[in-house]
């Protein structure tokens, strides 16, 4: 398709109407940090581009009842500096702060991070560990999907052509909970994650693991929950030897999962995960309040 029309939207209604009207012919641009490259490489060829980066209704971080809600067009810099996200969930701010570079974080949005479906998206493991839910809107409908069920394949999410990701939301922190995030990349800035891990824990005073959720990036076709490792830890007391056992267990899982992958993945990641996972879990425990 030839690009015929570009529209800078101001209102959400306008975006939803345009999507209803143009469906497959239209693509939404927010931060553009992936989009512009894909457009130039002709990996996408929309007839209509709808810019949502200045739609205020999609740019917010707010408390809503028991939930924290983040609008899809909220930039990484805004998340990184948010005063609304609690210290216990600092891991999410850390994840946003690990994206790209200052320039990329000033453009890129959490919605783009999710909807582009990159296996290495940095904020997604953190959101998965928080048990986040995607709020999806179209002209006549609003629906909610658990983020872990939102992915179809590498680069593909469950959005109909007339739908847009409106926000993500997750339960605000409670005493005893913490979120830790660690990213392993070639260097600090502008590195695509080799591994990223986010760990959510809920413990009692005796560090018994009441609940745990682990989100991983760059370990599968898209960011996923690591439910086997979660099951292994749940109900146990998080002493050093238990954590050690869990890291070994995580390594074994990856050996199987990545068996057919190139050496850089199948040999390196099962080994590297041990340090990354342990650090993320300890970070989560250190911010429990």
């Amino acid at each position: 398709m030839e690009l015929k029309k570009v529209i800078k939207a101001e209102k959400l209604d306008e975006v939803l109407n345009l999507l209803a009207e143009n469906r497959e012919r239209a693509k939404v641009i927010a931060g553009g940090t992936d989009f512009v490259i894909q457009l130039r490489e002709k990996k996408i060829a929309p007839e209509v581009i709808i810019d949502i980066s200045d739609v205020d209704e999609l740019n917010f971080i707010r408390k809503s009842g028991e939930f924290i809600e983040i609008g899809a067009a909220t930039k990484f810099t805004t998340i990184k500096n948010s005063g609304i996200i609690s210290d216990a969930f600092k891991g999410l701010k850390d994840a946003a702060g690990h994206v790209g570079s200052p320039q990329i974080r000033n453009l890129g949005t959490v919605g783009g991070n999710i909807c582009n479906g990159s296996p290495a998206a940095d904020t997604v493991p953190a959101l998965l560990a928080l048990g986040a839910v995607a709020v999806v809107k179209s002209k006549n409908n609003t629906r909610e999907v658990p983020l872990e069920e939102f992915y179809l394949d590498r680069g593909k999410v469950k959005l109909e052509p007339d739908e847009i990701l409106y926000a993500v939301k997750f339960l605000n922190s409670k005493p005893g909970q913490g979120l830790g995030f660690v990213k392993l990349g070639l260097r600090n800035a502008l590195a695509i994650s080799s591994i990223s891990i986010a760990v959510f824990v809920e413990t009692d005073n005796d560090i018994n693991c009441k609940d745990v959720r682990i989100g991983s990036g760059a370990l599968a076709k898209f960011p996923i929950r690591e439910k086997e490792v979660e099951a292994f830890l749940k109900g146990k007391t998080l002493h050093e030897d238990v954590i050690e056992e869990a890291t070994e267990f995580f390594g074994k899982i990856l050996e199987q999962r990545l068996a057919g992958r190139p050496p850089v993945e199948k040999d390196y990641k099962p080994y590297a995960i041990k340090g990354v996972f342990k650090e993320a879990l300890n970070k989560a425990l250190s911010v429990v309040c």
């Binding site: 570009v6 800078k8 810019d51 320039q103």
Partner: peptide, 12 residues
Amino acid sequence: NLVTSCLVMAFQ
């Protein structure tokens, strides 16, 4: 804010 102008569409 500092941004990379190669990743911003002119119409934006």
